[in-house]
């Protein structure tokens, strides 16, 4: 008999994640891929793979989250990222607190209660500023690979302030800074500061209940972590697999 008790799917705008858990809520398998244009077909392929790997059949409860959640035909239920991230992080870190999730398309601040459910939340969903896309887009202009962004930003004490909050205008500002001879790492440091400024303003609106936790793909960026801690004067803690927390929470909610 299969050990898979539930499967969580996070069909995000940048990456697609699947997590399978056993009856105790322990992760027994996970998959992560860049999101393809036909996310429903991609998820089906990933689901088939994870089911085949563990001998699970289609009756295993499958919970979908993320922007593509409503396209997933095999999902028993779909839930928003807010609920799933809160549950995943609560289980992984074992505490209530304030979660910052910086995803590819939006960023969220979620106050998690003592039962792992969201108490309050705020989303930046109106533009790319304050999301992973902001760093990705502007870094492309500097020719720096995404995994190197954080280290490069922290490699210098020099910081070029970026005054444009709009991603497109920030790109123009970068071009001007390059033309004036500014160092790419100093520009990167300024870009990180700009993103963190947007996120921290949301954190202040929701209110900080310690500890401060970070999830989403951008959580892997050490400069973002350090600057958030500096701006909030709080320690920032991370779950084991920050990018999987949405899918993990979805799977937990399926048990």
């Amino acid at each position: 008999m299969s050990r898979v008790a539930a499967i969580g799917i996070d069909a995000g705008s940048t990456t697609c994640k699947l997590v399978a858990v056993d009856q105790d809520g322990t992760i027994i398998s996970s998959l992560l891929e860049p999101t393809e244009p036909r996310v429903e077909l991609q998820v089906q392929r990933m689901l088939d793979a994870i089911r085949a790997e563990h001998g699970a059949n289609s009756s295993v409860r499958t919970i979908a989250t993320g922007y593509g959640r409503k396209l997933i035909k095999d999902a028993t239920r779909n839930l928003t990222e807010i609920t799933c991230h809160a549950r995943g992080v609560f289980r992984d870190l074992g505490c209530a607190g304030t979660l910052i999730d910086i995803g590819g398309q939006d960023s969220k601040v979620i106050q998690i209660g003592g039962d792992g459910r969201p108490v309050d939340f705020m989303m930046n969903d109106k533009c790319a500023a304050g999301t992973g896309r902001f760093l990705e887009y502007t870094a492309a202009r500097l020719g720096v690979p995404v995994p190197e962004l954080g280290a490069r930003a922290l490699s210098t004490a020099q910081e070029e302030p970026i005054s444009s909050t709009c991603t497109v205008f920030a790109e123009s500002e970068i071009i001007s800074l390059i033309a004036r001879g500014a160092e790419p790492d100093s520009i990167l440091r300024g870009l990180h500061r700009s993103l963190v400024g947007r996120v921290v303003s949301m954190v202040r609106n929701v209110g900080i209940v310690a500890p401060l936790m970070l999830s989403g793909g951008v959580a892997k960026n050490e400069a973002v972590r350090e600057m958030i801690a500096e701006a909030t004067v709080e320690d920032v803690i991370l779950p084991g697999e920050p990018q999987l927390m949405g899918a993990y929470g979805a799977a937990l909610l399926g048990i």
Binding site: T80, P118, D125
Partner: peptide, 15 residues
């Protein structure tokens, strides 16, 4: 109604 707005309302209902 944009997806983001609906998602926020849906998350609110879930809470």
């Amino acid at each position: 109604l944009p997806y983001q707005t609906l998602s926020r309302i849906e998350a609110f209902v879930e809470t």
